[in-house]
């Protein structure tokens, strides 16, 4: 029992969960509105898009790199998907938009993967470049403009609800969007990949040490390439979900999200240098950022101080996480040395 507890308090997720809980209580105290059905649904609904993005960013960080191109990739794929289907007058269901987005996402992901995996260039540098490239392609070559109307299938999917939460006291209602299932699906598939397949083990191994991973028999290049393809696909899903939920396509709306998404992943205890981190922690960190961003008014922080407050939380939170991760790593090394001495 004591051992279990010690193990628990040594984990970063434990502290993030504590902060999360404290924040929830603070919001409840200040507004009396946190633990209402519609508010919880609002937060979950706001989590869908950053949550899916975070899964992609998380996987790349685990493999020892940073992907900053996912907002641009999502914008480009969802713009093309929406535009093509609008021009074709698509009246059918939402399966085709998802199919197109997935294919395009895989293609653009492969573009990243080619440079990162096979040419062995640093992910951050490649994705900084490809981010500009995707943006430029969208704004220059495709002459992107806001699309005020989206295909009817996407529209009805984006506004459909799993259930409607109602606050009995205030009478306010909030929709639990069907797109939440996309987040759940992505989490499920990713959890399986990371924890139950050699591909997933390979990602962790490469993040820990690419040379050792190679020696151990992992195909480092192919693993990195496939990883970026997969991340491209789920980023494209996030973009499409955003368009469906907003009921319009705005080309620059998602750009700039990468900073807070990556901050959330690191906040959740993912090692910045790669090799360690859990999906649960990743979602906890992202949830914390989404919670803070969408509760400033409820807490009663003046608008002028909002950015400062979110920034401080990111600095302090990621600092604690990074410290915890480092401590765990040093402890691990000590144990290894002890083992060697014996």
């Amino acid at each position: 029992m004591k051992k279990k507890f010690r193990k628990l308090i040594s984990r970063t997720e434990f502290y993030i969960a504590l902060v999360f809980l404290a924040l929830c209580l603070l919001i409840q105290l200040r507004s009396g509105q946190f633990f209402t059905p519609n508010n919880i649904v609002d937060i979950l609904s706001a989590l869908v898009v950053p949550g899916i993005f975070a899964v992609g960013a998380f996987m790349v960080i685990i493999s020892g790199g940073f992907d900053v191109s996912f907002p641009a990739l999502a914008s480009l794929t969802s713009f093309v998907t929406t535009k093509v289907l609008l021009d074709a007058g698509w009246q059918g269901g939402v399966w085709l938009p998802f199919l197109i987005a997935l294919v395009l996402g895989a293609l653009l992901g492969a573009f990243n993967g080619l440079f990162i995996g096979y040419f062995e260039l640093p992910a951050m540098i490649v994705t900084l470049g490809s981010s500009s490239f995707f943006k430029g392609l969208m704004q220059g070559a495709l002459n992107s403009k806001q699309l005020a109307v989206i295909p009817v299938g996407m529209r009805s999917f984006g506004t459909s609800a799993l259930f409607v939460a109602k606050n009995v006291e205030s009478g306010l209602t909030s929709r639990m969007p069907t797109t939440f299932l996309v987040l759940a699906g992505v989490l499920l598939v990713t959890w399986f990949l990371l924890n139950r397949t050699m591909f997933g083990r390979g990602i962790y191994a490469i993040g820990g040490n690419p040379v050792s991973a190679h020696r151990a028999g992992f195909n480092v290049r192919r693993t990195r390439f496939l990883l970026l393809v997969y991340v491209g696909m789920i980023s494209a899903l996030a973009g499409l979900c955003r368009v469906c939920m907003m009921q319009q396509m705005h080309p620059t709306n998602m750009l700039g999200m990468e900073m807070n998404v990556i901050a959330g992943v690191v906040l959740g205890g993912t090692a910045i240098i790669g090799g360690a981190g859990t999906l649960f922690g990743c979602m906890l960190g992202t949830g914390l950022i989404v919670l803070v961003e969408n509760s400033m008014i409820l807490i009663g922080i003046p608008t002028v101080w909002k950015d400062a407050f979110v920034g401080a939380l990111i600095v302090i939170g990621t600092g604690i996480s990074a410290f915890q991760v480092n401590r765990a790593r040093r402890a691990g090394l000590r144990n290894v040395r002890k083992g060697a001495a014996l």
Binding site: S31, Q33, M246, S295, M296, I297, L298
Partner: peptide
């Protein structure tokens, strides 16, 4: 308490901020 709020020229933020305002 909140004489002026921000949307950052983003329809999604305007939507979420408005939801918060009406709740609080």
């Amino acid at each position: 308490d909140e004489p002026r709020v921000e949307s950052h020229d983003n329809g999604d933020i305007a939507y979420n901020v408005a939801k918060e305002l009406f709740k609080k």
